[in-house]
């Protein structure tokens, strides 16, 4: 029940922001449609429905801090791209390889977060996710060495459901 209320409030905020009308007619329309959507599809947003609202809020708070750290990483990645694309001998610095590793994250959202984070950090882009297997394209050796599972541990720390944070990071295997 708590989750349904949470989703309803979330949808209602979205409605109010996007419509920008505050008269009774539009608000009533919003209430009706948000209730309808919540009733029909409330089980789509969250996978495990046991958690309480406060845990959700707590996770959201930790997620916000994670995004702040992420923003710094995106800056570093863009500075690296800018340097690489403007350097006259860019082709000598490019030495791509495909790195394969297994993740210990279980939920889909955590994997999605890890894939997007890998894409946005310096020199690496996720190519493929197959179950627990990640295939990552690294632009040179330094970027490939940077995939030491540190990000994975950060993500695992956000979610209580990711039972145990990987202790030694992910074991990397050779390129494809």
């Amino acid at each position: 029940m708590g989750n349904r209320t949470f989703i309803f409030v979330l949808l209602l905020i979205t409605w109010v922001v996007l419509s920008g009308q505050f008269d009774a007619f539009h608000l009533a329309l919003g209430l009706i449609s948000c209730a309808l959507v919540t009733w029909m599809s409330s089980d789509l947003l969250f996978r495990n429905r046991q958690d309480s609202i406060w845990e959700r809020v707590h996770e959201g708070w930790k997620l916000a801090w994670y995004f702040l750290w992420m923003l710094g990483q995106i800056f570093l990645a863009n500075i690296a791209i800018l340097k690489l694309s403007l350097s006259p001998n860019a082709m000598e610095q490019v030495n791509p390889s495909i790195v394969h590793f297994k993740t210990k994250l279980k939920s889909d959202f955590a994997k999605f977060l890890l894939a997007n984070s890998i894409t946005l950090t310096p020199g690496t882009v996720t190519i493929k996710i197959k179950g627990a297997d990640f295939y990552v394209h690294a632009i040179n050796e330094a970027a490939a060495a940077g995939l030491d599972g540190e990000m994975e541990r950060r993500i695992a720390r956000i979610y209580r459901s990711e039972a145990r944070a990987p202790e030694d990071g992910s074991q990397r295997k050779g390129g494809s």
């Binding site: 863009n78 082709m91 490019v94 791509p96 894409t119 946005l120 632009i139």
Partner: peptide
Amino acid sequence: RFPDFYTRMHAAGKGDTL
């Protein structure tokens, strides 16, 4: 400038986002 599709994707994906 980048030589192949994957490296171009590095530039496009990151630069576009930020």
